[in-house]
Amino acid sequence: MLAETALDIRDLTVRYGAATAVAGLDLQLRAGETVALLGPNGAGKSTVVNAVLGLVPSTGTVRVLGRPPAEAIRAGSVGAMLQHGGLPGETRVGEVLHLVRRSYPRAWPLDDLVVTAGIDGLLGRPVDALSGGQRQRVMLALALAGEPPLLLLDEPTSAMDVEGRRAFWTTMRGLAERGTTVVFATHHLEEADAVADRVVVVAGGRVVADGTAAEVKSGTSGRTVSFTAAPGAALEGLPGVSATEWRGDRVQLTTDDVEATLRALLADGRRLPDLTVGGATLEDAVLSLTARTTIGVDR
């Protein structure tokens, strides 16, 4: 295994009774990457995260910076924000953070940690008085308390508003610049498209695509041609068009031959106001990649 490998997963398999949640999955991540794990409910994303943390029985091999998960966690090499994580009630934020920092052999300096996680002004606040976005920020601070080189995030922005999400991903970019490997599972595909160096699509407990967002999108056939038109305009039989979708007075055509479609549209002198031509979105690509894959459990 190369020294720059932050996470090395080989033939990972996780079963829940008769159902297989992860089926022989292989994945190697380099230090400093920001990696999005994408896929539908039941794809196995959260199970992979839990297996890396040693929270579910599994077979295969998982190494974090060359160590087994339990050893890496004890050394403070892994931080995690889980989708269903919680905070102890009837405590203050500073008390919880102090307790967690003491458990690591090398804790992140408090002042820098508070600024990095965006929890300035919250240390004296009761945990029970936090908003959803503030709780996520505190959970991030706890995940970073040991200054881990690997950060695992499961739906990290689910309770945040738009401003909170932007601030969160600004923080993630700063961590990546410091060399932290950031792995996040999300259903917010626009976030993955915007911030991930690498996109890993999981379906049926296996990796079905792995590359940059642009590479994953380029593997999806079909482009879109959209323009303003009078409702009911005759658009049948256009070459290359596989789908037509109306949104008010705007029509979107999905086509496998954008040049032939445009030539046909312009052949009779038709005007195409507000014309845009686009490629497949990351959502299109993920839906296409996972459409025919099913799994027995929702993890």
Rank of each mutant, 00 (worst) to 15 (best):
T254W: 11
L175F: 03
P126E: 09
S242Y: 11
T220V: 10
D112L: 14
E245F: 09
V114M: 06
E283Y: 07
H187W: 06
D8K: 12
T20D: 02
V93D: 01
A267Q: 00
D120T: 13
K45Y: 09
G85S: 10
A243D: 07
I119L: 09
G17N: 03
R292A: 14
D111H: 04
L189N: 09
E283D: 15
W169V: 05
D298C: 00
T228K: 00
V225H: 01
V251S: 02
G79S: 11
A6D: 07
S221T: 10
A230T: 15
A203R: 04
R63V: 10
G205S: 02
L253D: 06
D112F: 10
G296W: 12
A75Q: 15
P239G: 04
R271V: 13
P239W: 02
L142D: 02
E283L: 08
A280D: 01
G222Y: 01
P156R: 04
R198K: 13
A72L: 08
L130P: 11
Y104T: 08
A19G: 11
G66W: 08
L53D: 01
D128L: 13
A117G: 07
E155M: 08
V195T: 14
D154R: 07
A230Q: 14
R10Y: 12
V202L: 03
V49D: 05
T254N: 08
R206K: 12
R63P: 03
R63A: 13
G146V: 03
L151V: 15
T254E: 07
A230R: 15
V277W: 06
R250P: 08
V127S: 01
L55P: 03
D8E: 15
T254R: 12
T261V: 00
A176V: 14
A229N: 04
E155Q: 02
V22N: 03
L65E: 02
S77V: 12
N41H: 12
E71F: 03
L144Y: 09
V200R: 07
M139F: 01
P40N: 04
E90V: 07
G232F: 09
L82Q: 00
K217P: 06
L235P: 02
M81H: 03
P88L: 13
A176Y: 11
G240N: 06
A209H: 07
E190Q: 12
S242M: 10
P149Y: 12
R198M: 14
E236R: 15
E163Q: 03
L287A: 14
A6V: 13
E90A: 15
L53V: 07
T294Q: 14
R247L: 06
T281R: 02
K217A: 01
G164N: 12
T34Q: 13
R92G: 09
A260H: 01
L144F: 10
L110R: 09
T261C: 02
Q252H: 13
P148D: 15
G118C: 07
L289D: 04
R106K: 15
E4R: 15
P105A: 02
L113V: 00
T276G: 09
D26V: 11
E215R: 08
G79K: 05
H188S: 12
A129F: 13
W108K: 10
D120V: 08
W108V: 05
A213R: 00
L150K: 06
D210T: 09
A107Q: 09
S226C: 05
A43V: 00
V162E: 03
G44S: 01
L122I: 01
V35T: 13
T290D: 11
T224W: 13
V49S: 04
L140W: 03
A291M: 14
G124S: 06
V182G: 02
R263S: 12
S158D: 10
S58F: 10
